[in-house]
């Protein structure tokens, strides 16, 4: 009895009555700051994230000029939807997937494990960083589209609301899938080539580079399994006039189904993360 009540005389500092540990949310908050700081200091990543969608817009704008896809809708306006959705995928899925495999290979994650970092806090840091960088990237893209190419941006609040939920669900789906995919990729090298290659193929299938209705049905069916097609479609509903909905395969924007597919991927991705996330390879 005395053994349990008597004060401990260990001389190591702080052994008596340690205060409570910081919560996962608190560590996650400081990780968002860390991730953003590291992102800002990685000039290659900053340039790629911000310039890539703008360059895509410039190329499409130069190639197709002011040609019209639909009455009153030119190519730039049409492809802005696909480029915005692609941008979200790149800053979430691709950036997170490649970054985590690198961090794991460098031993950064093993270090975090020995600190007892809650995996949730790590995920919060990634998601927060993705949210901030994606918002900045989209602001640059839409700014260039509106100012340099006179692409009309929506004025109705309802359309911006659609924009907001498509972006947020797209970010969440992309982040959890980016984390999840690292459980199945061995080296950072494999991730560095495999993830971008997958992203490019998905962009072709999902109608980022083409007029969606021109795509063969089988491509559309494969693409329909993945979130990108739905994000592109959701973005079209934001940037194109409602008359353009007639061009969609279903004849409508299918907001309900878009939300359903994205939410399903967020849940699937989160479950896969929770079950397979590892701080180090092979243990």
């Amino acid at each position: 009895m005395t053994a349990t009540t008597a004060p401990r005389t260990t001389t190591a500092p702080g052994t008596t009555a340690r205060p409570a540990l910081p919560s996962a949310a608190a560590i996650g908050r400081s990780r968002i700051g860390l991730e953003l700081r590291l992102f800002a200091r990685d000039s290659g990543q900053v340039v790629f994230s911000f310039a890539y969608p703008v360059i895509m817009l410039v190329i499409f704008g130069s190639v197709f000029g002011g040609e019209e896809v639909l009455p009153g809708v030119d190519f730039r306006q049409y492809f802005l939807a696909g480029i915005a959705a692609t941008g979200v995928m790149l800053t979430s899925f691709q950036a997170v997937g490649t970054a985590i495999t690198e961090e794991r290979e460098r031993g950064d994650l093993a270090r975090l494990q020995t600190l007892g970092t809650p995996p949730l806090a790590y995920g919060i840091g990634k998601a927060g960083q993705v949210l901030v960088t994606t918002v900045a990237q989209l602001a640059v893209l839409l700014g260039v589209a509106a100012l340099a190419y006179d692409v009309p941006l929506p004025t109705e609040p309802g359309r911006w609301l659609t924009f907001a939920w498509v972006v947020v669900l797209g970010i969440l789906a992309g982040t959890v899938m980016g984390i999840a995919v690292t459980s199945f990729i061995g080296s950072a090298r494999a991730a560095g080539t495999g993830i971008p290659a997958f992203a490019v193929v998905l962009q072709f299938l999902s109608g980022v580079f083409f007029i969606d209705s021109d795509l063969p049905a089988w491509m559309d069916q494969i693409a329909a399994v993945f979130p990108l097609k739905w994000m592109v479609q959701g973005m079209r509903s934001v940037f194109l006039p409602d008359s353009a909905a007639a061009m969609e395969a279903a004849g409508t924007w299918e907001h309900g189904r878009t939300a359903l597919v994205l939410v399903a991927w967020v849940i699937i991705g989160a479950v896969v993360c929770a079950r397979t996330f590892r701080w180090r390879r092979g243990e």
Partner: peptide
Amino acid sequence: GQTTGAGNALTVRETLDHYTHYHAA
């Protein structure tokens, strides 16, 4: 460890300050 776990782009102080958020004391 063999690495700070927070990348090499931080300063020494920034690295230490960041990890204060992980500990009880």
